[in-house]
Design a protein around this nucleic acid. Structure first.
Lengths: 160, 160
DNA sequence: TTAAGGTAGATGCAAACGCATGAACTTCGA
DNA sequence: TCGAAGTTCATGCGTTTGCATCTACCTTAA
C-alpha cells in the first residue's frame, strides 16, 4: 500500500536526520579541528560567505545556537583575533561582524581540508543527479518557511 | 560550465546542513518540548524504534552526543523513570537500555505532536517524488561509511 | 514630542557538554 | 592459560550552552 504524505514526510525527515548525524560524526572524527572546532568553523564559514559585514542575528539564522551562546562564541573568536566586532553606525543596538585576515586564513585552511572530506563522503555514494536533487530539496526545505500562523508577524504584514 | 563533482558534493552537503538548521530551529520553536527536550526525545525515539533492549554505544550511533554526555543523559532519563537500565547478562561491561511504560507514553505523546509539525514543514514544500528521493539519498549518505582507512577495524575483519 | 512596545545584543547562573581518564570486563595471541 | 590490548561505560573537571533577564536603542502612534 502507499504511504500517506504525512508518513512519507516524516520518513524522509528522519532519513535526513540520520544522514546528518552520521556524517557529522564522521567529519568530527577527522583530525582537522585542532585550531577550530566545528562550531567555530561554522561561524567563520558563514562570515566568509558574506562579503560585507553581517549582523549577529543574521549570523544566528545559519548557526544552530541560541543567541547568548552565539554572542559569546563570537566574543571568543574576537578575543582570538579571528573576528572583528564593530558598532553598526546605522543601528546603535547592532554589531557589524567580519572576518579578520587571520580569521579568513584560518577558515580557508580548515575549510580546504574539510571540503576534501565532504567530497569523499558525499561523492562516493551519490550520483551527480542525486547531489543536484539533494541541493534542490535542501533549498526548498530551508526556504519553505510558510508557517500557518506566524506569531511574530503583525496582521497588517500578513496581508501583504 | 559544469561544476566539479567535488564542488557539487560540497554544495549539496551545505544545502543539507542549511535545511537541517532551519528546520531544527523551526521545530524547536514549537510549544511541545515542555516535558521532553529535543535531545531527550531523540533518545526515547531511538529506543522506541528498537523492540528489544539496546546497548548504550548502539544508541550513541544515532545520537549526536559524546559517549559521556549520552551516558549522563540516559542516567537522567532513568532517574525520571522514562528509561530502564539493566546490566547485560552477556557482557559484564554493558547495559541494556529500554523504555519504561512512562517513557513509551511520553515518546508517543510528544512524537505525535512533533510528527504533525514535521509533516507540515516537509510535505508543504516537497512533492512525493522529492520526499522519496530525500529518503533514498539520506539512506545512502548514512550507510555509505566507506572510509579509506578505518582505524577501528582490525586487518582481519577488513579482509572479510 | 513622547511614551509604549519591539528588537539587538550582553550577562548571571544553573544545567549540560566534551575531553581526558579510570574501572570493570572481554577478547586475542603467545 | 595468562597477560596485553581492546571495549564499554562512568566520573572528574573545565568549558560551553540555554534560559531568564537586563540594558540600550529603534519604531510606532497618539
Amino acid at each position: 500500500m502507499t504511504r500517506s504524505r504525512s508518513r512519507l514526510a516524516n520518513d524522509s525527515w528522519e532519513s535526513l536526520l540520520t544522514a546528518h548525524a552520521a556524517l557529522m560524526k564522521r567529519f568530527a572524527a577527522e583530525p582537522i579541528w585542532d585550531e577550530l572546532s566545528m562550531r567555530e568553523y561554522d561561524v567563520l564559514y558563514t562570515l566568509s560567505k558574506h562579503e560585507g559585514p553581517i549582523r549577529l542575528f543574521e549570523l544566528g539564522r545559519g548557526v544552530l545556537l541560541s543567541q547568548p551562546a552565539l554572542s559569546r562564541l563570537v566574543e571568543r573568536l574576537a578575543d582570538r583575533g579571528l573576528v572583528e566586532r564593530t558598532a553598526d553606525p546605522e543601528d546603535g543596538r547592532g554589531l557589524r561582524l567580519g572576518l579578520t585576515a587571520a580569521g579568513r586564513e584560518a577558515q580557508r585552511l580548515v575549510g580546504g581540508r574539510h571540503a576534501v572530506d565532504v567530497a569523499r563522503a558525499v561523492a562516493d555514494v551519490l550520483t551527480d543527479e542525486e547531489m543536484r536533487a539533494l541541493e534542490s530539496i535542501g533549498r526548498k526545505l530551508a526556504g519553505g518557511q510558510a508557517p500557518a500562523q506566524d506569531t511574530h508577524r503583525t496582521p497588517k504584514e500578513a496581508v501583504l
